[in-house]
Amino acid sequence: MDKTPKPLTLSEKLFLVRFRVDSTSHLAVNQEACKACADRACLTICPTEVYRWDGAASAVTVSYEGCLECGTCRIACAKGALTWRNPSGGFGVCYRFG
């Protein structure tokens, strides 16, 4: 029988993606709105888990470096708490296959 290899973790998958990381984040969150937000869909809906909840700071952290620029968070956020701007020209995700 065939050996099932251990599935890749998300960080292992991200390691396979080529990024040219911009010096500043293209994603901005309104922390006040996030604090008051009941569902915080961004925390689960992002395919690369860019958004995490920092309980101690009561704030959403944004690891924009691993963003695939799909825009799902922007569509899912009902609070209008996310401001999206495209990364600088040539920066961000650079798919090798697509």
């Binding site: 396979l16 993606v17 695939l68 090798r96």
Partner: peptide, 22 residues
């Protein structure tokens, strides 16, 4: 990928890239 109908077709393969788009 774990569904048997799928895993049979992709077994032994190596992930090269992970992508998302709307």
């Amino acid at each position: 990928k774990r569904h048997p109908a799928v895993s049979r077709l992709i077994r032994g393969g190596a992930t090269e890239e992970y992508l998302a788009h709307i």
